[in-house]
Deep mutational scan, measured.
Amino acid sequence: MQNSHSGVNQLGGVFVNGRPLPDSTRQKIVELAHSGARPCDISRILQVSNGCVSKILGRYYETGSIRPRAIGGSKPRVATPEVVSKIAQYKRECPSIFAWEIRDRLLSEGVCTNDNIPSVSSINRVLRNLASEKQQMGADGMYDKLRMLNGQTGSWGTRPGWYPGTSVPGQPTQDGCQQQEGGGENTNSISSNGEDSDEAQMRLQLKRKLQRNRTSFTQEQIEALEKEFERTHYPDVFARERLAAKIDLPEARIQVWFSNRRAKWRREEKLRNQRRQASNTPSHIPISSSFSTSVYQPIPQPTTPVSSFTSGSMLGRTDTALTNTYSALPPMPSFTMANNLPMQPPVPSQTSSYSCMLPTSPSVNGRSYDTYTPPHMQTHMNSQPMGTSGTTSTGLISPGVSVPVQVPGSEPDMSQYWPRLQ
């Protein structure tokens, strides 16, 4: 039975679970980093996980050691009161100082060594604690504590007292930064006198190289990059290397530039699409467009005044059976039934097929058609009795279509119309 579990990581490298990497692998990681390889490249070359490479390099940059820390136990506290007071002093002298600059000053002034120097995250935590204590304490208590930490007896009751030896409130920041720059020169002199001055200088240079600022491109470089971006948004590694040799930039910087440029292009394309949609959409909808001609068919113009009344309900007709019959029939052209047409008796099958359309009241044959006459024609229609054979009435077949029909004066039988409509 094995005491430890061995495995293979996602890159194909072998590791022992819970145990640190061998010293030979750690040394190779540092050597590759000094030669300029990126952590992701080191991870692929040595088949070590990216997190492990970053952790080893980060500890090497901070402490200069590649040895693993002790497994188990607690780390001794490195942010001692003396170190905290120095950090507060540096922050007062130059409020814009960075944590890694404070760390360098602690090393250069001999406050800490490589073994007990606090990390950048520890210094940031100390600065946050100082800021929170400043908010919790009152103004007087804060000034007393700062005077105690600074070891001075001057008056701290006013704002300019934060910067000793100065009279203009805006000047101390520059003086403090100048003092810090002077301390940086002392850093070089002190570290050069040490035993491991060369190694420390190499480590600091490598650290500065990794902690780079934003790349500033010249106009020629920007023009070359934009020209390549117009050709393709995704250049391959050969195109990037050719462009890197042409404009004297690292291939990694060119790759990052193209990634950022593609993101910018997507944002601009989104804005262009929004403007295009806004320009195509009308600002207001016309009133006429809300009524579609496919839904509402136009009603033909009436030929006679009587045809303006298109349904039985508008003429005072309360018989719903006839109203439904007229509205359900398709529109037909106007025609006239003459008196000489043969009077065919209704076929029983045809009569039964339209039995649902006729009223059940037996008085329908005896009703006159003056009910369908509009009010303004009552006088004219009353002067001509319906009993004469020459009287013409208008029957409504569908809305908007008038059918003048000659009705025999002897017997106005409704059943004569249905064979004609089939």
Rank of each mutant, 00 (worst) to 15 (best):
Q2P: 12
S4I: 09
V8P: 04
V8T: 14
Q10V: 09
G12I: 01
G12C: 04
V14N: 11
V16C: 07
N17E: 05
G18L: 01
G18K: 00
G18M: 00
L21K: 01
L21W: 00
T25P: 04
Q27I: 09
K28G: 07
K28R: 09
K28F: 08
I29K: 01
I29M: 06
V30R: 13
E31V: 14
E31H: 11
H34E: 12
H34S: 14
H34D: 14
A37V: 06
R38W: 05
R38G: 05
P39Y: 15
P39I: 12
C40A: 15
I42L: 02
S43E: 01
R44H: 14
I45H: 10
I45G: 15
L46T: 09
L46Y: 02
L46K: 01
Q47G: 05
V48E: 00
N50F: 07
N50G: 14
N50R: 15
C52W: 02
V53R: 04
V53L: 00
K55V: 03
L57K: 03
G58K: 00
R59I: 08
R59F: 04
E62Q: 08
E62M: 14
T63R: 03
T63N: 08
G64Y: 02
I66D: 04
R67E: 13
A70N: 11
I71P: 00
I71C: 05
G72Q: 00
G72H: 00
G73D: 01
S74F: 01
K75N: 05
K75P: 04
T80D: 01
P81N: 14
P81C: 10
E82H: 12
V84L: 05
V84H: 03
K86P: 04
I87S: 06
I87T: 10
A88T: 15
A88N: 13
Y90F: 08
Y90H: 08
K91T: 03
K91H: 03
R92C: 09
R92L: 13
R92T: 05
R92F: 10
E93I: 09
S96P: 15
R103V: 11
R103L: 07
R105L: 11
L106W: 01
L106F: 05
L107G: 09
S108H: 11
T113W: 09
I117N: 07
P118E: 01
V120G: 10
V120H: 03
N124A: 03
N124D: 01
V126T: 15
V126S: 08
N129T: 11
N129I: 06
L130T: 07
A131M: 12
A131G: 12
A131H: 08
E133T: 14
E133A: 09
Q135H: 10
Q136S: 11
Q136V: 13
M137C: 07
A139I: 06
D140S: 10
D140L: 12
G141M: 12
G141D: 07
G141C: 14
M142R: 12
Y143K: 10
D144H: 11
K145D: 08
K145A: 06
K145P: 08
L146F: 13
R147K: 14
R147I: 09
M148V: 09
L149D: 06
L149V: 10
L149R: 06
N150D: 08
N150K: 14
N150I: 15
